[in-house]
């Protein structure tokens, strides 16, 4: 009988899953080709308007414009404020905010 053996059934399940898994790569290629014009249009619009950030987190200005925000804004609400918007826990500050300069100690010339 077809697939009468347990091993046949197991291999059939794995084979079906493997076929779906391989299909995801073919589908990915198809989606990329289909979205290419929209992606190009998106890039052209962003360049035309001078956009600098993605519009994923619109709840706070420092998460809406990650690359443009100053370090003051997450904590501006009151003197003891902590950063409280949920998206603040999802993304980290830009490198320029948290760059460490201790290695420059003693190497800079003090202007006179």
């Amino acid at each position: 009988m077809y697939l009468s053996r347990a091993s046949d059934r197991a291999f059939a399940i794995v084979a079906v899953l493997a076929a779906v898994w391989l299909w995801t790569f073919a589908d990915a290629s198809r989606i990329r080709a289909r979205r290419a014009p929209a992606r190009a249009g998106q890039a052209e619009l962003a360049a035309r308007l001078g956009l600098t950030d993605i519009c994923l987190f619109t709840e706070a200005r420092y998460t809406r414009h990650l690359s443009q925000a100053d370090a003051f804004s997450p904590y501006q609400d009151h003197p003891g404020a902590v950063e409280h918007f949920p998206s603040g826990s999802l993304v980290v500050p830009p490198d320029s905010w948290i760059a460490r300069h201790a290695h420059l100690a003693g190497q800079a010339t003090v202007p006179r």
Partner: peptide, 23 residues
Amino acid sequence: REAVTTLARSPELLVQRMVAGRH
């Protein structure tokens, strides 16, 4: 990938003014 590709032509240099750490 989407962000880096789309923002590849963002302004080359932006100048902001800061007063006491605020924009």
